[in-house]
Write a protein that binds this DNA or RNA. Structure first.
Length: 477
RNA sequence: GGUGGCGUAGCCAAGUGGUAAGGCCAGGGCCUGCAAAGCUCUUACUCGUCGGUUCGAUUCCGACCGCCACCUCCA
């Protein structure tokens, strides 16, 4: 079955057919680096990460470009407040952005272009638009002439009248048309600026993405993603600039991620109601945050609150317990035809449901449902199975880890024991458990409970079962 | 004013023109010296309200109520 993507441009589900079957190109609008990124930013970045992982899972080659806006009013203002240079502030926050992304398990994009490193490309693009009569210069600033682009408004579904009617923005009298926007801003004293044919200045926000997307992905890209707040005017303007300059379709599929909310309101930097991703990462494991962020479909709003994170924590615990139990069956054994356990069918069912969910506009919530259904089926049969079922269990483990990897909710490395001191550590813990067992045998509950409690303090949790006492590390939080 | 979206069990959240995935919580059970953890079972005659179309609607249409977002920088 083919994939379908909801295209904001047509406002409907469309079959996904990449322009070049050899390589899918994706451009994702990254952050303006004037501060640390918050959970809302993380949601968009994470969805992009999962889209890419899923496309790779499906066998596509993917080239992902995620930009950094590193010159902008906000950066200049913030830098002035802090008494550092705009360049320095952008650099610091850019590094912090990569660090936070990495901590969330987001694989780096193939290219992370920065606006300030693409000034010549932007100037070229503006030059082209000037030559085509689609732009004009006023006092060293260059404006885009919106009425030259007949399709203006096609993405945001807005008519010219509508755009003017509700305008709450102060109109710059010098512009020919209130809808015109700047592609090049004449330098103001003390602000960072670059040489251009129109004098010193800096690029407007929209031209940055047009130029960087086309430089790294060509004139037509497959998927352009970003938060829904960017739909207008940012993406509308990108289309206007790019398509008028090249005459080609700029992006074939526009994907917009719904807001992360807090107390029912949009989480936004200007609202002062945001949770920094790094703060969340200090309080919850990566996989828990990922699970939370994909527990709703990406086009539906999702409310951030501690209760929801706790729920995800519980769900992840369930998943990890199952995977931990299955891990010992992993590897080596050839799937056997004769072991026709119902579980085998359950695995196939899970795989097809997972694929179907992800194929339908990346429905991660539904995909999680498929995974947890299998978890439940595994748990039910795990205790009753004998050695003959081992190959099937290995299959289950493979299928589960493979799909969980696509979503990034199972960290195999973290759960594999691979340290040099692991053996000694385990021996020490086992020794303590032996002592505790002796205490239990003589009903010395005080000593026994002391060992149990103290180990718990060290994040080692022990369980007394009919088969003896076992232990495990608790997930760090 | 224009544009778009949402309203599903205590909570979160999928979904379909034919009768509601999954997770959390809660309650029962197993296990335990007691716990914890784990496993397991149970939990929406019902999908904001009112109409309409239909053999049949939560799913389609209309109205209404409530909520959110974009139209200004914001993922």
């Amino acid at each position: 079955m083919g994939m379908k993507i909801y295209n904001s441009l047509s406002r409907q589900l469309e079959d996904f057919v990449p322009l070049n079957p050899e390589q899918v190109s994706i451009y994702s609008c990254g952050p303006t680096v004037y501060d640390y990124i918050h959970m809302g930013n993380a949601r968009t970045a994470l969805i992009t990460d999962i889209i890419r992982r899923y496309l790779v899972y499906k066998g596509y080659n993917v080239k992902l470009v995620q930009n950094l806006t590193d010159i902008d009013d906000k950066i200049i203002n913030r830098a002035a407040e802090l008494g550092v240079s705009a360049k320095q502030l952008a650099h610091q926050n850019g590094d912090a952005f990569f660090e936070d992304s990495q901590r969330l398990g987001i694989q780096p994009a193939d290219v992370h272009p920065k606006a300030t490193e693409h000034i010549p490309e932007m100037i070229d693009l503006i030059q082209t638009l000037l030559e085509k009569g689609a732009a004009y210069v006023i006092d060293g600033s260059v404006y885009y002439r919106v009425n030259q682009f007949a399709e203006y408004g096609k993405l945001s579904n807005r008519k010219p009248e509508d755009l003017l009617a509700g305008a709450r923005v102060e109109i710059d009298e010098r512009k020919e048309d209130p809808r015109d926007f700047d592609m090049w801003k004449a330098a103001k004293p003390g602000e960072p600026s670059w040489e251009s044919p129109w004098g010193r200045g800096r690029p407007g926000w929209h031209i940055e993405c047009s130029a960087m997307a086309m430089k790294h992905l060509g004139e037509t890209i497959d998927i352009h993603a970003g938060g829904e707040d960017l739909l207008f005017p940012h993406h509308e303007n990108e289309i206007a600039q790019s398509e008028l300059a090249t005459g080609c379709t700029f992006a074939r599929y526009w994907m917009h991620v719904a807001f992360l909310k807090i107390d029912g309101k949009r989480m936004g930097k200007s609202e002062q109601n945001f949770i920094l991703l790094r703060d969340a990462l200090d309080n919850y494991p990566t996989e828990v945050i990922r699970h939370f962020l994909i527990s709703a479909h990406y086009r539906h709003p999702l409310d951030y609150n501690p209760e929801s994170l706790t729920k995800s924590e519980g769900a992840l615990r369930r998943l990890n317990n199952c995977l931990d139990a299955l891990k010992k069956y992993d590897g080596g054994v050839e799937p056997s035809e004769t072991t026709a356990a119902p579980l085998q069918h359950a695995v196939q069912r899970m795989k097809s449901q997972f694929t179907q969910a992800m194929d339908t506009d990346f429905n991660t919530a539904q995909a999680l449902g498929a995974i947890f259904t299998l978890v439940s089926e595994v748990n039910k049969s795990l205790s009753t199975l004998d050695d003959a079922a081992t190959p099937v269990l290995a299959e289950v483990y493979q299928a589960l880890t493979e799909t969980c990897q696509v979503l990034g909710i199972y960290n195999m490395e973290a759960r594999n024991d691979d340290g040099d001191n692991v053996q000694q550590r385990d021996q020490l813990i086992n020794l303590l458990l032996e002592i505790r067992q002796d205490a239990r045998n003589r009903k010395d509950w005080e000593t026994s409970d002391k060992i149990r409690d103290q180990l718990k303090e060290l994040n080692v949790e022990i369980q007394d079962t009919p088969q003896g006492t076992t232990w495990k590390f608790l997930a760090r939080s």
